[in-house]
């Protein structure tokens, strides 16, 4: 089973890298860009576990290691059964 986890800054946290990317896009004339938030993508290949176990393990791993809950939030999805 493959899962994809997306980690990004919480809305309340300033994202200086996203701001810089936004400014670059504006400089290139993409005026429609209102905001940019930069994040990280993790793809985990999980073996020998059930869907229910994934439901428990993935948020646990994301909250404990992949994201720092003080500044970041995460979402995840199964991309391959």
């Amino acid at each position: 089973m493959k899962v994809r986890i997306l980690v990004s800054f919480k809305d309340s946290v300033l994202d200086p890298q996203g701001q810089t990317v936004k400014n670059a896009l504006h400089t290139l004339g993409y005026a429609a860009v209102k905001d940019v938030r930069q994040g990280k993508v993790f793809e985990l290949d999980l073996a020998g576990i059930s869907r229910a176990e994934a439901d428990r393990l993935v948020p646990e791993m994301a909250g404990k290691v992949l994201a720092n809950p003080i500044i970041e939030k995460f979402t995840w999805q199964i991309v391959e059964e």
């Binding site: 946290v13 300033l14 200086p16 890298q17 810089t20 720092n68 003080i70 500044i71």
Partner: peptide, 16 residues
């Protein structure tokens, strides 16, 4: 900070 022995977290420097 990551260990939680001190409160808060670090972000990238403001001017990157």
């Amino acid at each position: 900070l990551e260990l939680g022995l001190l409160p808060g977290a670090m972000l990238r420097n403001k001017h990157l």
